[in-house]
Amino acid sequence: MSREVRVAVFRPDDERIDEAVDLLDALGANPVPDPMLAVEPTGALPAAGSADAEADYVVLTSKTGVELAADAGWSPGDATLVAIGPATAGAAREAGWTVELTPETYSSDGLVDLLSDRVDGALVEVARSDHGSPVLTDGLREAGAEVHETVLYRLVRPESAGESAELAAAGELEAAAFTSSLTVEHFLDAAAERGVREAAVAGLNDAVVGTIGHPTRETAENHGIEVDVVPDDATFEALATAVVECAAPAHRGR
């Protein structure tokens, strides 16, 4: 019944968009892949873990960051390795590293809650993208940690992005699944470049919009996008499932 539910998905244009399409297809939806993120490595590696900058904790916030560091031959050394969630932890274990801590909530807030009672006086290395939330670094510093941040990669908008914005503006999307604040912003930028931003927002507000986490929800709502679904589990699988389940009965009722 949900096969006609067109769901826009904005994962990076690598295996993650392919996996997202496969998942949505398995859920009976009609995926509309429109990558809003592309990875540009900076070439930088975490300072901590080297002989001259041993960290007490190393915090990794994405599978991409793990893979870039591992491919460059970096390892966390004797530091306590902290992963933001299961995908990041899985990539770290594939690299041969031992993941000792993962928060209950897969977010910057969850990491701060996990580490705040552990890091007073510790050196914490945070390795992530250029769009990492200050919630993490500020929270760790407030907990008494010395924080060193390394930007492993930049997240940019692919030039080809924007098909979903045109579909939304035309009223031809039943749902959209945003996985970060940056995907929301890049969607709106792509819509603006095509002269359909206002219509695209209106189209989303006639559809089902899901976000991973409340910071992404807040970004969307600050731009006038009404959010219908925020799953408790901050994974794409949970988001896609919730969005399709929410969108299918609404579509059938039209």
Rank of each mutant, 00 (worst) to 15 (best):
M1I: 07
E4W: 09
V5K: 02
V9N: 05
V9Y: 05
R11C: 03
P12R: 09
V21S: 01
V21Q: 05
G28D: 13
A29H: 06
V32I: 11
V32P: 03
P33E: 00
E40P: 03
E40V: 15
A44K: 00
L45E: 06
P46N: 03
P46S: 06
P46H: 02
A47K: 07
A47C: 11
G49V: 06
S50H: 12
E54F: 05
A55I: 07
A55P: 07
D56K: 04
D56W: 02
V58I: 10
T61P: 01
E67C: 11
L68E: 01
A69S: 15
W74D: 05
S75R: 13
P76G: 10
G77C: 03
D78P: 08
D78A: 12
L81C: 12
V82P: 02
A83C: 14
A87G: 09
T88A: 13
W97F: 09
V99T: 13
T102I: 12
S108G: 11
D117L: 06
G121P: 04
A122F: 03
L123Y: 08
L123C: 00
V124D: 03
V126C: 02
R128P: 06
H131D: 14
G132T: 01
G132I: 02
S133P: 05
L136D: 03
G139I: 05
E146K: 01
V147G: 02
V151I: 11
V156D: 14
P158E: 10
E163P: 03
E163A: 08
E166H: 12
G171T: 10
E172G: 00
A177Y: 05
T179C: 11
S180I: 01
V184C: 05
V184L: 05
E185D: 12
D189L: 15
E198D: 15
A199C: 01
L204F: 07
L204N: 02
D206V: 13
A207D: 00
V208F: 09
V209C: 10
T211S: 11
I212L: 13
H214W: 12
P215A: 13
E218V: 01
A220Q: 07
E221W: 05
D228M: 07
T235H: 03
E237D: 15
E237R: 15
E237M: 00
A238F: 11
V243F: 04
C246G: 14
A247N: 06
A247M: 00
A248F: 06
A250P: 11
A250K: 14
G253W: 10
